[in-house]
Design a protein around this nucleic acid. Structure first.
Length: 340
DNA sequence: AGAATTTGACCATG
DNA sequence: CATGGTCAAATTCT
C-alpha cells in the first residue's frame, strides 16, 4: 500500500520533471519553473519521509466517519417543538466542531469557460449560499446528498477566489460515512465496512473523480492547507502559524494513459492568471489528494465524551487529535508563496 | 411527483 | 451587533 503511494509520488516527480523540461524555454516564466521545482521537491520529500519512517507520515484521508448516531446527526426531523429545536441546534454545532476540516484549492479550467459545479466524486446537495464579507463571490454550502438517508455528515463550502475566478477554495468538513451508490464495488462490499479500508476507498474515490473530470470538467488541485489545530495535542507546535501543505499530486497510476501529453496548464500562482485562460482546455487532469489531513478538535471535553468510535474501532479513531502526531514534522513547507 | 436549488430568515458566536 | 452557517419554504429542475 505504502509502496504504491511512494511509487506514485516518485512517478509524479518524474512527470513533473518532464513537465519542467518542456517548460525550459524563454517564454515560460521563471515563476512557473520554480513552482514546478517546488512540486518536484515536495514529491521527493514525501517519498523520502515515507521511506524513512516506514509509515505514512500523514494519512491520505482521515478515517471514515466516526459512528455518530444517525438520530443525533439529524437534528431536523420536522421538529414541531421549538424547544427541542433549539436543543438540536446546539447539538449540531457541537458536532460541527468535532468534525475534521480541511481545505483544498481547486482550479477549474474548461475550454469553453464554463465554470461548472466542481465534481469531486461525491454527491452534494446545496443547502445555502452566503455573501461573505470582503469576498467578491458568495460562498456556497453543500452537504452530502445522503445525509438524511445514511446520516452522512460531510459538508463542504465552495468559495470562488477573488483574484482568479477559476480557482475555488473548497473547505471540506466531516468525512463521508455514506456509500456512494454510483459505484458499489462488489469486491470490497463483500468484506464489509472496515475502518482499515479507508485508503482503498479513498483511492477509488479519486479514480472516480479522475474519470469524472476526464469527461466533464478539468479540475486541478492546487494545494491544500490545514486550518485548525487544537491546542492540546501538540503543545510544542506553534499553533498560530498556519501549516501549508505542498502540492501533492497523487493521481492513481493505473489509469494514466492520458498522462503522456498533458499541457503546461499547471498553474501558476495567483499572479499570472491571465495567460492561463489563453491555454486550451487542460489536456491533463491532475488530482491531488491531501496527504496531511488533520482533524480539528477544538473541544477536548467533547472528544472525551464521545469515545464510541475509539472503543469500537480496533484501529483507533482518526478523529482523535492524536493523529496530528502523524503530521510530518520534518516536512518542509516551502510553497507558501503559492497562496496569497 | 420527487429531487435539487434558491433565498430570506434565523441562530450561534465573537 | 456584525458575520458566518444553517434552515426551510418557495421555486425550479428532471
Amino acid at each position: 500500500m505504502e509502496k504504491a503511494i511512494i511509487i506514485n509520488e516518485l512517478t509524479q516527480g518524474r512527470e513533473l520533471v518532464n513537465q519542467l523540461k518542456r517548460h525550459l524555454d524563454p517564454s515560460t516564466s521563471r515563476q512557473t519553473c520554480e513552482l514546478l521545482l517546488d512540486k518536484i521537491l515536495s514529491s521527493y520529500e514525501k517519498s523520502l519521509s515515507m521511506l524513512n519512517w516506514g509509515g505514512f507520515a500523514g494519512e491520505p484521508q482521515p478515517a471514515r466517519g466516526s459512528p455518530h448516531s444517525f438520530d443525533a446527526s439529524n437534528p431536523r426531523s420536522e421538529g414541531s417543538d421549538p424547544d427541542s429545536k433549539d436543543q438540536c441546534h446546539r447539538d449540531v454545532f457541537k458536532k460541527r466542531k468535532t468534525l475534521p476540516r480541511w481545505t483544498e484549492q481547486v482550479r477549474v479550467c474548461s475550454g469553453t469557460g464554463v465554470e461548472g459545479p466542481l465534481d469531486d466524486g461525491y454527491s452534494w446537495r446545496k443547502y445555502g449560499q452566503k455573501d461573505i464579507l470582503g469576498a467578491n463571490f458568495p460562498r456556497a454550502y453543500y452537504r452530502c446528498t445522503h445525509r438524511n438517508v445514511q446520516g452522512c455528515l460531510a459538508t463542504k463550502q465552495v468559495q470562488r477566489s477573488d483574484q482568479d475566478s477559476s480557482i475555488f477554495q473548497v473547505t471540506y468538513r466531516g468525512r463521508h460515512t455514506c456509500i456512494q451508490s454510483s459505484h458499489l464495488n462488489p469486491a470490497s462490499e463483500t468484506q464489509g465496512p472496515k475502518p482499515s479500508q479507508d485508503h482503498q476507498e479513498k483511492q477509488e474515490q479519486s479514480q472516480e473523480m479522475l474519470l469524472n473530470f476526464g469527461t466533464d470538467l478539468k479540475v486541478e488541485e492546487l494545494g491544500s492547507r490545514e486550518e485548525i489545530f487544537p491546542s492540546f495535542s501538540f503543545p510544542s507546535t506553534p499553533i498560530d502559524s498556519e501549516n501549508e501543505e505542498s502540492l501533492i499530486f497523487a493521481e492513481p497510476m493505473k489509469e494514466n494513459s492520458f498522462m503522456g501529453n498533458y499541457s503546461p496548464a499547471f498553474l501558476s500562482p495567483a499572479t499570472s492568471e491571465s495567460n492561463y485562460f489563453s491555454l486550451s482546455p487542460c489536456q491533463m487532469n491532475f488530482f491531488g489528494m491531501d496527504h496531511n489531513l488533520q482533524t480539528s478538535e477544538s473541544d477536548i471535553n467533547e472528544i472525551i465524551s464521545a469515545p464510541t468510535s475509539v472503543t469500537n474501532s480496533p484501529i483507533g479513531d482518526l478523529d482523535f487529535p492524536l493523529d496530528q502526531v502523524d503530521f510530518d514534522p520534518n516536512f518542509q513547507f516551502d510553497t507558501s508563496e503559492f497562496f496569497t
